[in-house]
């Protein structure tokens, strides 16, 4: 009985792993082959050769490098905005129970529930008026807005965990409030803040609707791929799929320990 159960459990885990990893393996093996190989049939499970032919084609295609750089710039501007706006707010939310705290938290949470089309489409008129249309800053501003609610939840959770005792000890030993925040609280919160910033990066890197709507020339990589893929050969699509998911997968690896904290924090707020 126990042996059968153990066997079934192992089988279940195996199926789970295959389900998640096989598609990633498929896209990787196709992206790392040649343009000719892509059309061969039937495809062997283990690729006949490994080549950067397709990836090179993708990178050298018109618009790829530029939009890649745009993606990075947009992501970093978003990170900067999120950092400046969320740090003081999350600190305030974590340290004091004050009137309206819960309503503010609820307001932040529900704001994220608004669909992106509803945000992006009307924003274009405003952006044209503010000369932000088709600008990287414009896209970054919206991406930051999209990342802010989760950033606040993660950060508040982190600050709550850092006991007030440490700060009070610092005051007693003569540190000022600013100094305490910079020398005591911030260093302890740093790993969590890094995770939050990586999360912001992924949000921005992955976002495609708003980035397409708000730009014409200055597309991010996702937006660029979305707009040219219908007219592109299939190997372009494979390479794009591979290229778009790669950094995301690396980053999720880096913040794996924070995944639960993010959602745990979300739950306890509700």
């Amino acid at each position: 009985m126990r042996v059968v159960r153990k066997l079934l459990e192992t089988l279940f885990a195996l199926i789970l792993i295959l389900w998640v990893l096989l598609p990633i393996y498929f896209i990787s093996s196709l992206s790392l082959s040649t343009r000719k190989e892509v059309f061969s049939f039937p495809k062997p499970f283990i690729p006949r050769e490994v080549s950067v032919d397709i990836l090179r084609f993708f990178v050298e295609a018109h618009g790829t490098v530029r939009s890649l750089l745009n993606s990075v710039v947009v992501a970093f501007i978003s990170i900067l905005i999120v950092l400046v706006v969320s740090l003081p707010a999350a600190y305030a939310l974590s340290r004091r129970r004050f009137r309206g705290r819960d309503s503010i938290m609820l307001f932040i949470l529900t704001s994220r529930m608004l669909p992106i089309p509803l945000l992006a489409i009307p924003l274009t008129n405003l952006y044209i008026a503010m000369r932000l249309y088709d600008s990287l800053l414009g896209v970054a501003l919206l991406h930051a807005a999209m990342a802010l609610p989760f950033a606040i939840i993660i950060l508040t959770g982190i600050f709550v965990k850092i006991s007030k005792d440490f700060e009070e000890a610092a005051y007693i030993f003569g540190a000022s409030k600013t100094k305490t925040f910079l020398k005591v609280t911030l260093p302890m919160a740093l790993p969590g803040i890094t995770a939050m910033l990586i999360f912001t990066f992924i949000t921005s890197w992955n976002e495609v609707f708003a980035a397409s709507i708000l730009t014409v020339e200055n597309r991010t990589l996702s937006a660029h791929v979305l707009n040219v893929m219908q007219a592109s050969p299939i190997y372009f699509k494979y390479a794009a799929g591979f290229f778009l998911s790669l950094p995301a997968m690396v980053f999720i690896f880096l913040i794996r320990n924070y995944l639960f904290e993010m959602w745990g924090g979300l739950q306890s707020e509700k």
Binding site: I24, I202, V225, M229, K237, G241, L244, A248, M249
Partner: peptide, 20 residues
């Protein structure tokens, strides 16, 4: 961790991955 990998992948990329 393995099961949460797709968490980081955008819907665009997921579509392209399933194209393969």
């Amino acid at each position: 961790f393995i099961v949460s990998i797709p968490l980081a992948i955008s819907d665009l990329a997921a579509g392209l991955i399933f194209l393969s």
